[in-house]
Design a protein around this nucleic acid. Structure first.
Lengths: 187, 187
DNA sequence: GTCTATAATCGGATAGAC
DNA sequence: GTCTATCCGATTATAGAC
């Protein structure tokens, strides 16, 4: 892996672990094994490097989600697969955590990939739910758009509860809870 | 308000806006209109002041929630009142945002009030759901503990989605979505 | 491309005067 | 109790040599 790549990957790790405010150029350079000159040669500064890192994380997140969304089974089975997928729960969501970073949400350029990623997932989930409803798998009373927001919110909130408790237990409960509620709609 | 109080309230504001890592003693002092000596006279340092601020926020959060939990109506009506209560959605949750702060979750003393607050809310919600089930307001198939985690996760995740979108729309949808799912259980 | 040197500002705190 | 002075390392770069 070349220097530029190592800088991007180090930034992705640190943004995940410590957020934007908590990540210094020096820490990035040390983790990447690169000097200051090297970093400022490839990137104009911390915001530029962070943007590159965030965009890559966003792309990866969509790709992983798409694996379950376009997988086999009914709409509800694919949503279950997405919710039950293995995750590093206690590390939190690398995209969701950025929404708590004041410097990220204050900068439209940095916020954009975060916004687009969640919007994309919500749309994708809403489409699956609408499809399930049309096929008669799900109750006609179910609102696809609202329920899609609920599903992704449960995931993001589950991360929050897990980190508060230093345990993945509340995350698993929240997921089981929403799956139970959805199954009721499928009866 | 005396100096000590102003320091605590300023810290609460800044922890909400910028998190623990993003909040400096200097910023706290400036907002409180106090000098350095003043702050270090009343508190041993940033962690001590933050702990005091976090505990107060935790207490306030429980008190506000209890207003809806012990209010009038059926279990589902009280949970709806809690979810639909007026909130500064775009500012995020002052307690939930702390779970994204590496220095907070890494310190058992700082994490404890956060952990206890969410555990208390989950317990309280689970109790309400169990009560509703016993009274026949809710389906016997509903799992009170899991559903309680789901409800609080929807709130916390709703904040995340709202901040990503710079709009409270996804928050409102997530809340409407889970209420729709719960109503299905009440039919 | 990568390195070292330099620098202005901030972070988090201690010391001691008033 | 509150203030100012002082400290040392970190932050976020820029400049210029190699």
């Amino acid at each position: 892996m070349n220097t530029s790549e190592r800088l991007i990957e180090s930034t992705r790790d640190l943004l995940w672990e410590r957020g934007y405010v908590g990540t210094s150029p020096k820490a990035i350079q040390q983790r990447a094994g690169a000097g200051q000159g090297s970093m400022y040669h490839h990137f104009s500064g911390k915001p530029d490097l962070a943007l590159t890192a965030i965009r890559r994380t966003a792309e990866e997140m969509r790709a992983k989600a798409e694996e379950q969304f376009s997988g086999p089974g009914t709409a509800l089975e694919r949503i279950s697969a997405y919710l039950l997928r293995e995750r590093e729960v206690l590390k939190g969501c690398p995209m969701g955590r950025l929404t708590q970073d004041p410097d990220v949400v204050a900068d439209p350029v940095l916020r954009q990939p975060v916004d687009e990623t969640f919007a994309w997932i919500r749309d994708r989930l809403a489409g699956l739910l609408a499809e399930g409803r049309e096929r008669g798998e799900l109750d006609a009373a179910l609102d696809p758009a609202a329920t899609a927001s609920t599903v992704i919110a449960v995931l993001q909130g589950g991360y929050v509860l897990a980190r508060a408790a230093d345990s993945d237990e509340p995350y698993r409960q929240a997921v089981q809870g929403v799956l139970g509620l959805l199954r009721q709609h499928a009866r």
